[in-house]
Design a protein around this nucleic acid. Structure first.
Lengths: 196, 196
DNA sequence: TGATTTCTATACGATCTCGCATAAAAATGA
DNA sequence: TCATTTTTATGCGAGATCGTATAGAAATCA
């Protein structure tokens, strides 16, 4: 029952446009990105962006929501592999590094850690979205650690999530991949090495 | 030889003005802060700001440099107390929390972690400043841990610094102080509890 | 006191930014 | 084929933003 809508159909994929807008926001932050730049990045003119997503802030919030949902799914999926504790922690951290090291020119970290947190101080809604993202990370990682036999999954989960945050900041500061991997190994050893 | 300058003397304290500008930048970020807002925050008109610090970006870089120097001094000073390992880690993290929880309205984290890292992606000079700040943290904390008898000061130092980064992000996300202190305790226990 | 030097204040112009109003284009349904 | 509906494109106007140019104020030296 593919309800054939009446008017002219969209000539773009909204999710793909949102992805491109996300990339722009990730690099330049919310305040540092203009609608013209978003228009250029997505290939859509400003009125089309407005029609599809609302104003600039709504588009930004949509980008945050999309990323949160993706991270959530990714972590849940990781749990399906039933890996030992050490491997779980390693996968989480290396997965983060892979994300943070991508970017059109240079490593650009995480949209939420490195730009939404900036905006959060002056925008209550963004602050809530950031809090929700952090809660997803803490909760999902704790679940993963619990399933892998950790004896203190909440505490260790918070620490692993914290290391992720730092990896994003360090990537943004220009740290080479080896340095990030070193931090990740330190964390893996500390969590999975000592007294499980 | 207090060289009496010829003309009209300054009617403001540059360091105090820089402090006020820093507060503004910390809340709204570089791109989100206008010269008018900086003028209002410092009490100086735009031309005075320009004469004292240069353009907006130079003022921002000066704010970063000032904070980096202060953190450096603070950490060196902490080493003079010759505390046991557990106390050192605790002091570092609680000191961070105290900083991150301050703000004119609400917790606002760290200027560098939460706003300079944002700017770093599109500004090589800021990126270098961020890298320098992170290096100061890693290095100074490692020194502190080494002096307190840690057997892996570099690795543990990187982890403690990483927790600081996350505490700043979490504060910005609106986490209550107790939550931050919980994360800090988790870290202290993990570092100072297991195998020294 | 007067000249000089430096800081402070007002004001301006060029540019950017945003959102929308209006017009053109493209698809469906009758 | 024609009317309807929705998307896309062009363009505008109000306002913000930045840097500076110019004028006025305050302190020192002669």
């Amino acid at each position: 029952m593919e309800s054939k809508v009446r008017g002219r159909p969209r000539s773009f994929d909204p999710d793909e446009a949102l992805q491109r807008a996300t990339d722009r926001f990730r690099t330049y932050g919310f305040a540092g990105t203009s609608l013209d730049e978003l228009s250029e990045a997505t290939g859509l003119k400003r009125p089309s962006l407005a029609a599809a997503f609302g104003d600039k802030r709504a588009l930004y919030v949509a980008a945050i929501d999309r990323l949160t949902a993706r991270v959530d799914r990714q972590l849940v999926r990781l749990g399906e592999a039933r890996l030992p504790l050490r491997d779980v922690v390693e996968r989480i951290l290396l997965g983060g590094i892979n994300l943070y090291m991508t970017g059109s020119d240079g490593p650009e970290g995480c949209l939420i850690i490195n730009t939404a947190a900036t905006q959060a101080a002056s925008d209550p809604q963004v602050r809530e979205k950031v809090a929700a993202f952090l809660a997803v990370e803490d909760t999902r990682i704790a679940e993963l650690l619990a399933a892998a036999g950790s004896r203190a999954p909440e505490a260790q989960g918070r620490l692993v999530a914290s290391i992720l945050h730092s990896l994003s900041v360090r990537a943004r500061g220009g740290a080479p991949r080896e340095e990030l991997e070193q931090v990740a190994r330190d964390c893996v050893d500390l969590i999975a090495g000592a007294g499980n």
